[in-house]
Amino acid sequence: MKTLTLSAFALALTLPSLPALGSDMPQDDTSRKDALTLWGVQFEELEYRYSDDDEELGVWNGDAFYGTDELKFRWQSKGEYAIEEEAYEKLENQLLLQTPVSDFFDAKAGVRFDTPEGPDRTYGVLGLTGLAPHWFEVDASLYVSDEGDTSAEFDAEYELLFTNHLILSAALDATVAFSEDREIGVGKGLVSTETGLRLSYDLIDRSFSPYLGVVHERKYGDTADLARAEGAGTEDWFAVIGARVSF
């Protein structure tokens, strides 16, 4: 009797180790087992600017991404369109690959194409983007142009919540050049800053948030000299109206 039970037990033990049973088990090849692949489109700025010397600009700063937690492809686009001149004062597109390097930061690398009115430039891009302590969204990029010039750009943004829908965001963008690229009006040293304050209201979720704001642009040092030499201004104040859009 005892032997019988024992052998039954032994049988029960050997059964599952038979390869036949193992291969019967479904393999999880559903999308659940794949990395979540997502996309998104965001325009931090999509606005009309009116300057203190009556210049009118259409401006955007947005990006679209596709990818996983581990690797994203990002297309970042910035432009400033002078409405009267019907010309792009600024038109830059970056194609980037982005991957996490810490809990809060991603490294990115790619190419940047500048195709405004005037000479074009192509750059190699290396950068870091993420969330710094105290909720500062920061983005730092290093560029090397096809002309061999290097420059760096630093972006920071901070949001102040008056309410959960009425939000004041402060943005600072600064560019530094390590060498001069006279053709595109860039002098060595601190090139320019753009500071903006925008008061937005989340009208439709976070998909559509109209805002009003002020933007201050300034050129510095050699870059300012180059601008003056061309008869252009070195400092502008803009009133802006626009919307933050995401979908």
């Binding site: 979540l36 997502l38 998104g40 959960n164 976070r206 995401s246």
Partner: peptide, 19 residues
Amino acid sequence: MRNLKMMPDYYNRQQQTVG
């Protein structure tokens, strides 16, 4: 899911305000 991935606080309307 997509919104949460894009902006983890997308749906959070209870965040601490200036007030």
